[in-house]
Design a protein around this nucleic acid. Structure first.
Ligand code: FES
Ligand code: FES
Lengths: 149, 149
DNA sequence: ATACAGCATGTTTTCAAAATCCTGCGAATA
DNA sequence: TATTCGCAGGATTTTGAAAACATGCTGTAT
């Protein structure tokens, strides 16, 4: 569905939303270790999110990453479109050159509906919604502690 | 969404469903030419569909491919699962090791619903449904003739 | 029986995503 | 202002899907 880069990016921004405080940035290595993501690779992905104004980064001692805006104001769609672009929402399901209402492929109508459903879901979900459930212990962004039990 | 192999496979089996007759198999090259698919690559994909009993192949003069069963009895889900497997319907949306109801990631519930929608759609659509619309001129499996207009 | 059309199969090449390597730069702090 | 921490970002390597290539094989037509 999403590229590996995008999956890593989603994990990372959720981790940051969970663990960053006004006085505490989250370090690259901390995220990489806890989420099992190659550190140097993650670095590039977070750079993208900084460029798209979803994260801020601070260099030097006690540096790290934090959300650029409030968690309530960041949707998953923004993260996905920054990393993977909007191509998945425009691409023909059976790979025809152009996805076009005027010349629909056999699955166009059904497929278009499904793509829209995904897009709407991503657009409605904010980081705040998601980390709320994590803080309640209902969902998880890392399975590390579960394995060590 | 689907791999390129899978997209090619869907295009090809639709083409076959449209153009095969009891006395006329459809040649590999004919499909490759009309759908703009690398011939040797398509060959491998169709081999998979033959192995999964979705197509039959006949060698020699006037040979080619035809549906193994009636178009009414072949669903898109069978084609997709033969080529890409069922991984997309089981994989975690943000890339966690295991997608599990007992330890859901933050988007698990929403995402699971979307995956199910896709699976149900693919399961309900038969080749017969789809080629019917094509024969009526409402949808298209190739854009070749549209370009040459 | 023989020729040949057309699929079957293994190998090689290409290309982009994924992962790694390495150096530079800015901020904190002493 | 010197040192060091930690992100920035270009360059490179690795990996695997996609594509191309080459050859074998098999059933049909004559
Ligand atoms: S034309 Fe195929 S999905 Fe729109
Ligand atoms: S655990 Fe992430 S989608 Fe199920």
């Amino acid at each position: 569905m999403f590229s590996k880069s995008c999956e890593y990016g989603l994990q990372a921004i959720l981790y940051i939303a969970l663990h960053a405080r006004p006085d505490r940035k989250v370090g690259l290595k901390e995220i990489a270790d806890n989420q099992d993501i190659p550190a140097h690779f993650l670095s590039k992905i977070l750079q993208i999110l900084v460029k798209y104004k979803l994260l801020v980064s601070v260099k030097g001692p006690n540096g790290g990453f934090a959300l650029y805006r409030k968690a309530e104001d960041i949707t998953l769609l923004e993260v996905v479109s920054a990393i993977d672009g909007l191509d998945i929402f425009e691409r023909c399901g059976i790979g025809l050159k152009h996805c076009d209402d005027a010349h629909p492929c056999p699955i166009h109508n059904k497929f278009k509906f499904l793509r829209e459903s995904i897009r709407n879901t991503l657009m409605k979900e904010t980081l705040a919604d998601l980390i709320f459930a994590v803080e309640e212990g209902k969902t998880y962004v890392t399975l590390k502690h579960l394995i060590s039990e």
